[in-house]
Design a protein around this nucleic acid. Sequence first.
DNA 1: TTAATCATGGACTTACAATGTCTATGATAT
DNA 2: ATATCATAGACATTGTAAGTCCATGATTAA
Lengths: 133, 133
Amino acid sequence: MKLSKATDYALHTMFHLIKKESAKPIGVQQLAEYQDVSPTYLSKILTKLVKAGMIESISGAQGGYKLKRNKNDISFLDIIHAIEGTTPLFECDFHHHEGCLIQSEIKNAEEKMNEHLRETKLIDLVKKEQRLS
Amino acid sequence: MKLSKATDYALHTMFHLIKKESAKPIGVQQLAEYQDVSPTYLSKILTKLVKAGMIESISGAQGGYKLKRNKNDISFLDIIHAIEGTTPLFECDFHHHEGCLIQSEIKNAEEKMNEHLRETKLIDLVKKEQRLS
DNA sequence: TTAATCATGGACTTACAATGTCTATGATAT
DNA sequence: ATATCATAGACATTGTAAGTCCATGATTAA
Ligand code: SF4
Ligand code: SF4
């Protein structure tokens, strides 16, 4: 019942990419450094974001990562789903009948959380933070 | 980002205890059998529910577990918190400033889910199920 | 009072997923 | 050509969930 560290890294990286958005990509070296994580491991994580279509990677010298999707559309849920997957919070092994009330109630609760995470865009926090400084 | 099997066991046990509520306790042997789990392991889990004040245990022959709190008050969240603990979904290692917006947004989302889980009482599902049969 | 029946807690082991490393490979700019 | 980058596969490491085993103490029934 906890979000993984990988999600933590992905979130902070996305915030970084949104704040410093530019045509030039940012290398994983730099992205990894301030988060105190190894570049290869962070690359593995970011590849998931690439496959989700959120960012793109540029190989070769002067390569790195940059935003692909419109930065105004990217929500917390997008990132969490890309990293953690979309398996429901609760799954029983028996499945002893369809339309199980336990499973559907927990699914309802999870959906309440997801709604909030879907509505909260990263760009909003960036702007809020800039107003405060 | 998944609920543990222990929570699964705890939930089903609580449903069982509510459905079959009586003055006589039910042995862990019986509770474990239909869930296909070892009695000693289930006992460990149920002990957490005892410490949370939800059920009580009676030692000795003819002993077992029975409800303690009013069965109308017991919610999904009570059980989940008793088993999983109450550590937040997201905690960063750096804590580089107070009032972090990332943490507070995820906490907000989590609270939306918890509200729903708090409002949903086990007894409601039991009654709903009985109406359907 | 004795024996059988119960829950409990400690010390384990086992299983598995998250986390992380190392290295070879292929792409690209200079 | 060469240095710089991301990528992916094959590992190693860590941590936590899941489960076992057994000794202990409580309680009841005989
Ligand atoms: S009641 Fe629902 S969660 Fe429980 S075993 Fe049946 S289908 Fe699974
Ligand atoms: S921004 Fe928030 S979550 Fe990220 S390191 Fe700072 S305090 Fe932690």
